[in-house]
């Protein structure tokens, strides 16, 4: 059977995990259904909303358009792995600025924002808006999201 399940070893939030899945299983579904890491959200499942944003080798990517098999040998970080001891400064800034309403987009926003700041793309509000445009917020919390990222970016300089 060519399409039979395949065995993979993935590194997620600093831990190695073995799993056996069909080749078509996305990183998003593996995180949520195999590992119970439900912080990473499924919004559109088609690359259009950013709710599933995680880091692979430190770069922000979309877990819904990544196969679990593609990240073998790479390091994956999800919202659960961001601030293990205390809140990550970007998480704290989101709380302080009330940068959400329903919270569904928030893990993706935060993962994206951490990378956005690290990339050096959070210099001005316009730059933050451009480089965060891959994360949609149905509740329209954008002004507070931008304010939170601006504060976290300034604090990190």
């Amino acid at each position: 059977m060519p399409n039979a399940a395949i065995s993979l070893r993935l590194q997620i939030n600093g831990h190695l995990h073995d799993l056996t899945v069909e080749p078509r299983v996305t990183l998003l579904d593996a995180l949520r259904e195999q590992f119970g890491l439900t912080g990473t959200k499924k919004g559109c499942d088609q690359g259009q909303c950013g709710a599933c944003t995680v880091h692979v080798d430190g770069q922000r990517v979309l877990a819904c358009l990544t196969l679990a098999a593609q990240v073998e040998g790479r390091t994956v970080t999800t919202i659960e792995g961001l601030g293990e001891e205390a809140l990550h400064p970007v998480q704290a800034a989101f709380l302080e600025h009330d940068a959400f309403q329903c919270g569904y987009c928030t893990p993706g926003q935060i993962m994206s924002a951490v990378a956005c700041i690290r990339e050096g793309h959070a210099g001005t509000d316009d730059e933050i808006r451009e480089y965060m445009s891959g994360n949609l917020c149905r509740c329209g919390a954008y002004p507070n999201i931008v304010a939170a990222i601006r504060q976290a970016a300034e604090a990190s300089r």
């Binding site: 922000r60 990517v61 979309l62 358009l65 956005c116 990339e119 480089y131 445009s133 891959g134």
Partner: peptide, 9 residues
């Protein structure tokens, strides 16, 4: 083009 996440992929 696309978004920062898509451009990284």
């Amino acid at each position: 083009a696309a978004s920062a996440q898509l451009r990284n992929m």
